[in-house]
Amino acid sequence: MKEIIQDIKKRFNCTDEIEQSKTQTYITVKKELAIALITHLRDIEGFTHLVLLTAVDWIENNQFQLTYMLNNPTKKIDIGVRVFINRETATMDSAHHLWEQMATYQRELKEMFGIDFPGSPRLNEPFILEGWDNIPPYRRDFDTLKYAQETFFPREGRETNDPAEFMKKKMYPDEEK
């Protein structure tokens, strides 16, 4: 594990290495080198199993974090490749040629975060939502409660408490904060 990290740090200029556990490490790589790094990991280092691809919205830094979680089934180690992309333009190179299921992940990210992956097959077909005309729902600035209250018909008489406040009142009535 250590050697692989040292090696790719040198080759691909990776930063921010975090060792979460003995078998799991996260590294950050620049957007331009990301696909090359993933291809290297898959073909040379034996990280043949794509666990997941997902995005995290760091709205305060105006950035999306893409996490490619790769797994080496023989050495039984995981590596999480983090790529930060600009939130405004939100474009990333497509990796659909590496794994067959990658296209599905990219379709989902396009729909739920609005991240574009030019060249990915069936990218613009609706995957989960249908007829969605708002900002992509997984972005942090999309307020799901407000949307639900405006769109659907809340039943009168339902008491909707802030869950945290309600639990505090019920379980720890004496506590002050």
Partner: peptide, 14 residues
């Protein structure tokens, strides 16, 4: 009344 998905953007409430 929406149950535990009362605040979900994709499920109906009643």
């Amino acid at each position: 009344n929406g149950g535990m998905y009362y605040d979900s953007y994709n499920t109906i409430n009643r």
